[in-house]
């Protein structure tokens, strides 16, 4: 079962696309392809166990609200996003 906070939309305050992309209502941000596997419970990655955003929301009892700022995973150095992972 997909995460209840996963939605598909074309735009937010920063982005606009010509197609729908996965978006996290908890984090109020678009979801990377890698994270979307977890949102969709693909490859045995169930979101209650593997998603830090969902887990934090449950732990804090504030699911349904924005629980943190910024997306997890990308290490931001100055203006550079230093991609920490590749997928070979």
């Amino acid at each position: 079962m997909s995460c209840p906070y996963l939605e598909y939309c074309r735009s937010d305050d920063v982005h606009e696309f010509d197609h729908e992309r996965p978006h996290c209502a908890l984090d109020d941000s678009f979801v990377s392809p890698m994270k979307a596997d977890v949102c969709n419970d693909r490859h045995d990655f169930e979101h209650p166990a593997y998603c830090e955003i969902y887990r934090a929301a449950v732990d804090e009892g504030v699911a349904g609200e924005a629980v943190r700022d910024g997306a997890a995973g990308d290490e931001v150095v100055g203006d550079d996003v230093v991609t920490p992972e590749v997928t070979d």
């Binding site: 696309f17 992309r21 941000s29 990377s32 890698m34 996003v81 991609t83 590749v86 997928t87």
Partner: peptide, 14 residues
Amino acid sequence: VAPTGGVHGKDANP
């Protein structure tokens, strides 16, 4: 050349 990968999407770079 590795044009796409599996980590990032157009939200990171259109």
